[in-house]
Structure formats: C-alpha cells, structure tokens
Write a protein that binds this DNA or RNA. Sequence first.
DNA 1: TCTGGGGTCCTAGGACCC
DNA 2: TCTGGGGTCCTAGGACCC
Length: 427
Amino acid sequence: MIMSKAIIQIDANNFYASCEQMIDPSIKGKGLVILSNNDGCIIARNSEARKMGIPMGKPYFKLKNKLNQLNINVRSSNYELYGDISNRLMQLLRKNCEELEIYSIDEAFATIKRPSNKYLYQWGSELRGLIYQNIGIPISIGIGDTKVQSKIANHIAKKIKKNSGLFDISIIENKDYFLSQIRIDEVWGVGKRMSEWLRIRGIHNAKDLRNMSSMKLREKYGIVGIRIQRELNGEKCIPLQVKQPDRKEICISRSFGYPIDSLAELKKAIAKFVISGSQKLRKYNQSTSMITIFTNTSHYSEGFFKSEAKAKLEIPSDDTITILKPCLELTNKIFKPYKKLIKAGIIMSNLQSKKYQQNILFNIQDVKQEIKRNKLNKIIDSINTKNGRETLNWSSSVLDKEWSPRRNKISTFKTTKIESIPIIFAN
DNA sequence: TCTGGGGTCCTAGGACCC
DNA sequence: TCTGGGGTCCTAGGACCC
C-alpha cells in the first residue's frame, strides 16, 4: 500500500565541497578535500577526490604528500560560508514542501502529499533543478513511508546513476532487492558497535535487519533497535520535528594550533569559549545554570591527561561576565603544570528558556546591574553580528596568534563579508 | 610540529525519600 | 542467620548522528 503522505529526505551532495566549488568555479572538476578545524582531519571531499582513493576522517598530515601528488585542492573548513548557504537552501525547501524538519547543516526531512497518480518524480526533479539554479548546489532526494526508509532511498538515489539523484522506495512493491543492497552499517541509527553485534549474528543488510527476531533485537538494543526495525518495515516510529526544539546544552571546544602549558593561556582560551557560548545563549533566548569546563593532552602521546570541573549558577544566566567569573576560578582547578594541553572547552547545560524564567533578584542594586549588563550584551552582540565576529572583544580572551586553531587554507567569505564580494566590471 | 566539533537519546546505577 | 519496596531524580557513560 502506498501512503498518501510521503516522507522526503533531502541532502546536499558533498555539501562542504559543493559550497567551496560554488564560490570558486576554478576548482570545479578537480579533486577537492575540506579539513576539520585546526586543519586536522579530512572531513569532506568531492567525488573526484573520492574516486582517487582519498579516505574520510583521516589526519591531513598523513595524506599531505598524496594530495600534493594527485594535485588535489585543499581547503580549511569555512563554517560561516556553509551556514549561510545552508540557510538559503532551507528557505527554498520550506517554500516547496509541506512540513520541514531541518536535521543538520546539509540535511532535511519533509512531507509532501502524493498526487493522484502517486508519482513524485516530477516534483522531485523540479525541486532539484530549482535548488541548483538558485543556489548552485546539487541535492539528492529519497522518498519513503518513514524516515529510515527515506534515508535508504536517498542512499540508493546517490548510488545508482540512472536515478539521477532521486529515488522513491514506497512505490516499489517488493523492496527486498533494494533493502538487501544496503549494508547493515549504512542503515540510519546503526553505528559501529551495533553493526558488529548484528554481523556476528548473520545480519548483514537492511533486509536481514527487517526480518530478524524482534525479541533478540529488543533484548540487546531495547526501544532504539525496535524503532529502526519497524521503520524499515514502513511503520512510522520517529516523528518529524517540525518545530526546532530548544537546545539542551551548548558545547564550545577547540584544539589549539600548538600545545599550551600555562595557566594564563588556558584562561584566555576558556574566556573565549565563554564569550561565544553566552552569545549563543542570548541568540537562542536561553540561560544556563550549570557549566562544565574541561581540558586534555593529546591522546596520541604518553601519559594522557584530562580534567574537568563544574559549577552551578544560583541564578540561571546568559550574561558573559556572570558566567565568566566562576569559569575562570574553575580553570585553576583543571590546570596542571607541565601538561601539554592541546584542547579545552566548555559545556553549558541545564539550559532554560528565558521566557519562563523567574528572576530572583534580591535587591535594587542587582536589578540595576542586570539591566545594565543586558544592555551592554545587546550592544556588543549587535555590533559583532553586523561587522563580523570579534569586532568587539573582551581583553581576557585575546588569543595569542600561534595557538589559535590553524585555518591556513581558508576560502574567502564571499557571501558573508561585504569586502570579499567579488567585484564585477560592466562595460 | 601534525589526529575536528557539536549535538541527542537511552540506560544503568546511585542517592534519596516515604 | 535474617536488613522492604517503590518511586523519582540525577549523573555518567555509551552509542549514535552529521
């Protein structure tokens, strides 16, 4: 039976690579890889680089020579650019679907009613054309009765060329052939550990998983496993999240360009994280009452060291200075001399919406100070939004150049910075 | 020299209460 | 000899996602 409402899964192909190629057409058709923060690992590549055998997730320094030999272009990740393109993409999708769930920077789920002949191929190929024409990014579309099915359909859309980036698994009467083509670890929700466990029991592909004993699956993986199995079978268990739920925590962490071993430097880094974390809080209209800060040495060297410390805030806050104070005190706790720290971060949790928050302020002085700081934060945020992050900064957080994360191969911000918009001379 | 960052959900176990 | 039972809340850790 074909359901009248289809679940659609849309994702941008090789999103980061596509964005880079879109703003710099001179690298089109050539191999391209994108590096993680700090130019650490390869986190994205275009199809040309994939065909040349460049793996995902591997450290850059190990592949540098190979990339050079193969003449593959390299870019540091440019999240401002990707975020901006993503916003445009989602806006267009929203206009052309019924309900939309923005699932990640380059993925969305949506629903759409089937036309009377049940076929969504025309709608889908028009949408692909529209996105490419307006944004310059190729997308793939998978269609099914559930989220898990639509992810699988998308996979097939990408895998088989003649599908031209679009596949509807719902209208396939007997899905066995297609499900048996999907490796168990390619099923959405089945990760490394689970696929190992399943393989040992002879479950190798999506079809096997759909057909296996629910009892066994439930025993080991509980409701999580059962949901995946039922969704494979066309039963909706994972609902679309149309309204973006409030965030539950905010985590900001970075690896340093070079190891640090002084308390002063660690404090600067933590301060920087607190500043951007509290800015995020204000953007989402939330406040935090629990802060964790952490740091660690390299996993790859002798004597791995990590430490963390927590503080509760009496009154939930989104104010930079209020949050900064306990964090700087905590930094004394997590710091240990002579340890070469390569990473640090903060986690703000127990987030709550400011809408429902009761302000427990004890005296008129507190109220006055609160109002003052709110005003100050607002001004700083708006200046930084308009003129680029870190136009205005706190002196406690100015990073020494050498250990700021490396981004040596960053593309220019062609869509988000006025000064890097290309100049075109017309005759 | 060199190995990312930011999330969510679920479960088990401990603390605590009556 | 023998040490309740049920509920809730919190936390840590595992697993997964992009």
